[in-house]
Amino acid sequence: MLQIILGAISLGLLWAIMTIGVYITYRILDIADLTVEGSIAMGAAIVAFSIFNGMNPFIATGLAFLGGMAAGLVTGILHTKLKIPALLAGILTMIALYSVNLRIMGKANLSLLRIDTVFTSLENLGLSPNNAVMLFGFLSVAGIVGLLYWFFGTEMGCAIRATGNNPQMARAQGINTNNMITLGLVISNGLVALSGSLIAQSQSFADVQMGIGSIVIGLASVIIGEVIFGTRNFLNCLISLVLGAITYRIIIAMVLKMGMPANDLKLFTAITVAIALSLPVFKTYLRPIKKSITGEDL
């Protein structure tokens, strides 16, 4: 049991990077960006192909990050320059990436068994494979949280937040909202691809299908994190996302352990997210409307 939970935590840390990426688009920019479904697989595809062909795994991981940024840039241009609605722009890039990812890998999946990954260097120090993933994941997440906390406090970061919050106001304050949306998409998808590349290396396997449903997993993690761990300030939000991603993995590990067929997993996640998103509606139904003081129905 402990093994399952530890495994869930280490995997959750890798997914946390993706969750932070989803948070940037979904909460900060107020866009549901479906590009992530393609960019997470793209990160995996780039890293798998590069490592398989003998590249240093750290450089390969960096390359995956850049690849994701390029995917975000494409969505950004489709949305801001060509005025395609954000949801559709994301879907277009996602579909295009499916072919791109097949091109990168040359086939639908690639095994990385017995090939050195970024985790190998830690394993060589005597850590078990799972602990290596956990340590590497923790350090990466801590670094990314720190960097983003700094970035969104800078003038440029504030401009992105203002753009997502009130684009009209942002333009009135001289902010180029198109550029800020694109920049947000670039950073977000870079992180998502980075996450995908680390997930692929931890499971020694890359698959073009691995992105399917990832946006929903990301949203589930965001919502779980916010509800359970709070949103008092930005740092608190970022930490909540990480804990949310880990919690989601633990929940999944538990329900699988309790005997739910793995094929039902996506249905389970979708229902969880649908319930979480519709909670405000249920709350208004459940709240009794008070009668007026005179006792008459108005």
Binding site: F151, G153, T154, E155, M156, G157, C158, A159, A162, A170, Q173, G174, I175
Partner: peptide, 16 residues
């Protein structure tokens, strides 16, 4: 206010 104070300027990586 800080956003407004920088109206018309390039938004740098300096603290907001």
């Amino acid at each position: 206010l800080a956003l407004a104070y920088r109206r018309g300027q390039f938004r740098s990586l300096n603290w907001g």
